[in-house]
């Protein structure tokens, strides 16, 4: 509408905050995640049993939910509730660290590609095109094996079945989508007048990155960060589900391993083994997705709302 309505001026940050808070799903998501993180951080107090500890003397396997095992027990009598806490802990760690590393790498590579252009840019974009077009699961599995087979990378990647290996693997994948976003931002910003103005008055490239590029792309980067967290958590579960995830050394576990165990429990009707880990996974993914969506709404000034 060309008769734009004059609305009271508010600082962009304040408006972003208000838009975020008006997203009901995100508020619930933040609430749920906070509770989860607290629960997991306080696992010595919140978990009722050790990760490998049986709830009682045999017969203790496949117990349905009851007083001494709130969410039932698994095939060797371990408490599902406590194992869920340990599993969520591993999954959150994987999600957080691989997202942070891949966003960092992505920003770096994307910014350089956008600013330098030329060959480097072309090659980077071809690589990302290739990887993003290919079925993700296939690439992930092949790259996992490949990465594990390269012995001189061991000091960085750690053992094939370690959590560190998974984080490195996801970081190698995760940077690509972030790099695309950042590159796009850089290219768009390069065209904008205030960058030209800054250049004209002799601002250094690093100054432009720090003062203009970063503040302008912080929104999309935050959004990418949240979605990489979900992506990493779900990918870990997928890998673990098919037995390619981090191995449960000394009974350690992750959400993926727990969901994977449910595969065997289904046909015998031990529903708790399937329902609770699945529910935990979906709740975490949903919360983070909602937060990401609200961040996108909040940081994208172009609101698509009726009038």
């Amino acid at each position: 509408m060309n008769d734009d309505v004059v609305v009271p001026a508010k600082s962009p940050r304040r408006m972003a905050y208000e838009r975020f808070v008006s997203h009901r799903g995100a508020v619930v998501g933040v609430f749920v995640l906070t509770i989860l993180v607290v629960f997991v951080a306080l696992s010595p107090f919140t978990a009722r049993y050790g990760v490998n500890e049986a709830v009682q003397a045999p017969p203790n396997y496949f117990l349905s939910p009851r007083a001494n095992a709130w969410l039932g027990t698994d095939d060797i009598g371990r408490d599902l509730y406590s194992r869920l806490i340990y599993g969520v802990r591993v999954s959150l760690v994987i999600g957080f660290f691989s997202a942070v590393i891949s966003v960092f790498l992505g920003c770096l590579i994307g910014a350089v590609a956008g600013f330098r252009g030329g060959m480097f840019d072309d090659i980077i974009m071809r690589i990302t095109d290739l990887f993003l077009a290919f079925p993700f699961l296939v690439t992930l599995l092949v790259m996992r094996n490949m990465l594990g087979a390269i012995t001189w990378l061991r000091p960085i990647t750690g053992d094939l079945s370690s959590v560190r290996f998974i984080i490195v693997l996801f970081a190698i994948f995760g940077w690509m989508s972030v790099a695309r976003i950042v590159r796009g931002q850089v290219l768009a910003l390069k065209e904008r007048e205030f960058i030209e103005a800054a250049r004209a008055v002799g601002a250094s490239r690093w100054y432009i990155v720090r003062r203009h590029l970063l503040p302008n792309s912080i929104g999309p980067i935050m959004v990418a960060l949240t979605f990489s967290v979900v992506g990493a958590i779900l990918s870990e579960s997928t890998l673990a589900f098919f037995g390619y995830g981090p191995q449960a050394g000394a009974g350690a576990t992750s959400l993926g391993i727990l969901v994977g165990q449910a595969k065997g429990a289904v046909n015998t009707g031990f529903w708790w083994l399937a329902v609770f880990p699945c529910l935990a996974l979906v709740i975490i993914a949903l919360s983070i997705n909602f937060i990401g969506d609200a961040l996108r709404d909040a940081t994208d000034p172009r609101m698509v709302k009726d009038a």
Binding site: S237, V259, K263, A274, L281, A285, N289
Partner: peptide, 9 residues
């Protein structure tokens, strides 16, 4: 937010 293996299971 529901991975396919979750709905499948």
């Amino acid at each position: 937010s529901i991975p396919p293996y979750v709905s499948a299971i």
